[in-house]
């Protein structure tokens, strides 16, 4: 019975979450879900930061995670404001219908 977790397991978990985030980002059509997939990717990256921090017994990884959280908060506020504006303008959340910049 192992009593400790290999560090590669954490990184593999991080990779799985990141891949799922990418999948959601590519496959989903709802703006809000797409946005949430981005958050999922950020979370996956955070996990690897914290894991590396453990590996090197260094606090820097935590700081990076902290900054990612701050950036995510800023991003969420602006992004959701954009989503609200888009919805007000064309009452749809489907990302394929928001294509007025095309052509």
């Amino acid at each position: 019975m192992m009593n400790a977790v290999p560090i590669s397991w954490f990184l593999t978990l991080s990779a799985i979450l990141f891949a799922l985030g990418v999948a959601g980002f590519l496959f989903r059509r709802n703006i809000i879900t797409v946005f949430m997939s981005i958050e999922l990717m950020l979370n996956a990256v955070n996990l690897s930061f914290v894991t590396f921090s453990y590996q090197h017994k260094e606090v820097s990884g935590h700081l990076f995670t902290f900054f990612v959280m701050v950036v995510a908060a800023a991003e969420a506020s602006v992004g959701l404001a954009i989503i609200l504006t888009v919805f007000k303008g064309r009452s749809t959340l489907n990302i394929d219908d928001v294509n007025s910049m095309k052509n």
Binding site: V5, I7, S8
Partner: peptide, 15 residues
């Protein structure tokens, strides 16, 4: 990452 670094609870307290 070979499995030399193992994660134990309490193995790193600098956080």
């Amino acid at each position: 990452f070979p499995d030399t670094t193992m994660v134990r609870f309490g193995g790193f307290t600098g956080g």
